[in-house]
């Protein structure tokens, strides 16, 4: 296996205080190597999203250590974490979270804009990312004019436009029908296989988890099982645009 990219040691996270205090994560140890495709599963409320947000540097651990590329994330400042996010991480949300009334093009450009790229670089990058998710020709459509599957693909294009080291997807297919879900999985598989991007994905559906080469099961804020998937499902052909 290649170098360790992510290492969580005894990471906890709690919400609330006193009587209402709730331990969402009760001590997580996890190592992820570069180039892995990892599915996180588990019952609702088991802490998957909480762990994902910490992994994506959107949130900080309550205690424990998070090493990303050898950096101690838990002791970084807000701005340092933001810089980490914009250089290495791409996030795909369950609810898409695209800017409303804004074209696919501008949505995908946004991370490049914050990175300080010029207009030409941004346009080319956005076009390439949209093409790779099968949305060439849809640049000027706003989220309102796109189907759920298309919106999620715009969100994936936005996550990969910066060529990140890691793509984190929290239930990327949660809002989609089976057919669209398999298309999205095909995309993630292709990203992982062809570009060597590490993919961390939360999912409820065993069908989707089957694409991953490793499955981690959460129960009550702990990792209950961590197993390799010797025979990942093979993706259907990556989607060319279907209307």
């Amino acid at each position: 296996m290649s170098a360790v990219l992510i290492r969580l040691s005894a990471v906890t996270k709690s919400y609330g205080s006193g009587q209402a205090r709730l331990m969402a994560l009760q001590g997580i140890d996890l190592e992820v190597a570069a180039g892995e495709f990892l599915a996180i599963m588990g019952p609702s409320g088991s802490g998957k999203s909480t762990a994902m947000n910490i992994l994506g540097c959107l949130d900080t651990p309550g205690s424990g250590q998070y090493l990303f590329k050898g950096a101690h994330v838990e002791s970084l400042s807000r701005d340092q974490r933001a810089r980490l996010r914009r250089r290495f991480l791409g996030f795909v949300f369950q609810g898409f979270n695209l800017l409303p009334r804004t074209s696919a093009q501008e949505n995908v450009e946004l991370p490049l804009l914050y990175r300080g790229d010029s207009a030409t670089v941004r346009r080319a990058g956005a076009a390439r990312a949209l093409q790779s998710v099968g949305l060439a020709g849809w640049e000027q459509h706003t989220p309102g004019e796109l189907s759920g599957g298309q919106q999620q693909r715009v969100a994936i294009a936005r996550a990969i436009v910066t060529a990140p080291a890691v793509v984190l997807a929290d239930e990327p297919t949660g809002n989609l029908d089976t057919q669209r879900s398999h298309e999205i999985m095909a995309l993630l598989v292709a990203l992982n296989r062809d570009h060597g991007i590490t993919v961390l994905m939360v999912t409820h559906e065993p069908d989707m988890a089957a694409y991953a080469r490793r499955q981690v099961h959460f129960v009550d804020g702990r990792i209950a099982r961590d197993e390799a998937n010797a025979h990942p499902a093979t993706a259907p052909a990556a989607p060319t645009e279907t209307v």
Partner: peptide, 11 residues
């Protein structure tokens, strides 16, 4: 969202 995809608070 802007913060999540890499904007600094000041930006």
């Amino acid at each position: 969202l802007r913060l999540a995809i890499g904007a600094l608070g000041s930006e």
